[in-house]
Each structure stands twice: as C-alpha cells, then as structure tokens.
C-alpha cells in the first residue's frame, strides 16, 4: 500500500476552495455564536424563572439534538417560517445557534467563576449592571473563558463538516467530490483530515497566544513529593529533579 500523492496535488485547487469555505463558515459561526451566547447566558443567570427558563430550554435543545439532525431541521423547517435561505446560509445559521448554546454555558460558568463580591461592589459604587459586567466582570472571567471557548470553537470547525450533507461546498464536500472522481478514498480523506487538523491546530495556537497575553494559566504539575504515586497517576514523563 503506497500513498498516491498525485491525487492530492492534482486536486489541490478543490481542497483549497473547500478549506477557504470551511474557514469562512467556521469564523462566521464562531463570531455570531459568541454574540448570541452573551444574552443567552445573562438570561440564564437571571433569578426570574420567566427569563431563565427559555434560556435553559434553548441551551438544552441545542446540546441534546445531534447537529446533523438539527441542520436538517433548519433546512426543512425554515421555509415553514417563510425563510428560504441558501444551504450555505442555513448551515452557518444552524452552526452559529448550535455553538451559541455551548458558548452560553461557558459564559455562564465564567461569570460565576468571578467572586460575587466583585459585582456587588461595582453596583455599590453606583455602576450600572451592564457597565459592571463590561468593566469588572468580563476582564476577570477571560482566564476561565478562553480555554473553554477555544475547545468549543474547535468543535465548531469540526462540526462544520456536517454541512456537506446539505451539499455546501466546504472541505468535506470537496473531499467527497474528489473521492468520487479518483476512487482513492484513503488518500482523499487522509488529506481532508490533515487540512482540518491544521486548521484546528492554528485556531488552538491563536487562542493560546491570546491566553498568554492575558497573563497565562498556572501550570499544574504533579508535586515532586508524590513521585511514587506519579508512577500510576501521571502520564507525563517524570520531571528531572
């Protein structure tokens, strides 16, 4: 078994187009998903049931229905509400809403990770709720927010592959096209996977840089006092003393 790389190089154009579309879809969905997530999280945190309950329902709906099913619900369902969108637009909308449910839970957790006293003090000195959120809470929640949001963003890039089922010409769809022409599934899907791998790695690296700029995460290492137990409890190579 040898890898026939000419299959990849001959169709590099299609792969590139697909990769560009995947980046476009992902970026659009990540940004709009984040924007939707903030109001959803704030509603979810509201002490009033009438406000928090719809937010809980929204989050649970999107998190418990597989994205492939959700996507086809949007595809067949939006016309019922008089909305006839391109498959690409439908896909971005569905992916953004899907992502917003996960982002909302992260925002909620991040806001809760900031001690209550911070909000109470800010309100006590006369800041409005929104101003206190923006100037006191948001800057402090980033430490918690960024690593989790990175993971969800990466999930969205991966989940965007499902848009191929609507014939949206993104990376997976182009992979299927090339596979249909060349009958070399192993090479084609390995190449497709590698491009996704590169995209998600880039995304992770980008977020890591922004995390470092914000002061960085404390590294958790296995205490040298417990070197014996580390034989079982640590998967990292033993630290040199």
């Amino acid at each position: 078994m040898t890898l026939d790389l000419s299959i990849i190089t001959d169709n590099a154009g299609l792969f590139a187009q697909g990769a560009v579309a995947t980046v476009y879809i992902s970026v659009a969905a990540i940004i709009s998903g984040l924007l939707i997530a903030f109001p959803v999280a704030l509603l979810r945190l509201s002490p009033r049931r009438v406000m928090s309950w719809p937010a809980v329902a929204y989050v649970e709906l999107f998190r418990n229905i597989p994205f492939i099913v959700m996507l086809s619900l949007f595809f067949y369902g939006l016309p019922f509400f008089g909305l006839r969108l391109q498959p690409m637009t439908t896909g971005i909308v569905a992916l953004a809403l899907f992502g917003s449910a996960y982002f909302a839970e992260i925002v909620r957790g991040a806001i809760l990770s900031v001690p209550r006293g911070q909000m109470e003090s800010a309100r006590a000195i006369g800041m409005s709720y929104l101003r206190a959120l923006r100037e006191i809470i948001f800057p402090q929640m980033l430490r918690f927010f960024i690593p989790a949001a990175t993971n969800t963003s990466i999930s969205l890039v991966k989940e965007s592959a499902v848009l191929a089922t609507l014939s949206v010409a993104e990376l997976t769809y182009q992979g299927l096209i090339v596979q249909g022409q060349t009958f070399a599934p192993f090479e084609v899907f390995l190449a497709t996977a590698t491009i996704y791998w590169g995209l998600t790695a880039l995304l992770a690296a980008g977020f890591r840089t922004s995390e470092r700029r914000l002061g960085g995460q404390a590294q958790r290492g296995f205490s040298s006092r417990h070197r014996l137990a580390a034989r079982y409890l640590s998967l990292e190579p033993e630290p040199r003393s």
């Binding site: 991966k158 997976t172 992979g175 599934p185 192993f186 899907f189 497709t192 996977a193 996704y196």
Partner: peptide, 23 residues
C-alpha cells in the same frame, strides 16, 4: 492530536472507505 483535531465524520469515512485500501 489527530483524533481531537479532525471531524468524526471524516474519521467515519476513513474507517469505512479508507480501511479497504489497507486490506
């Protein structure tokens, strides 16, 4: 890193369409 960085959908394709290439 590969499994975490690539879509499950592609992994399914690799197992179903790709593995026959490895016999």
């Amino acid at each position: 890193s590969f499994i975490r960085g690539t879509p499950v959908l592609i992994q399914i394709f690799l197992f179903y369409y790709g593995l026959p290439a490895l016999g």
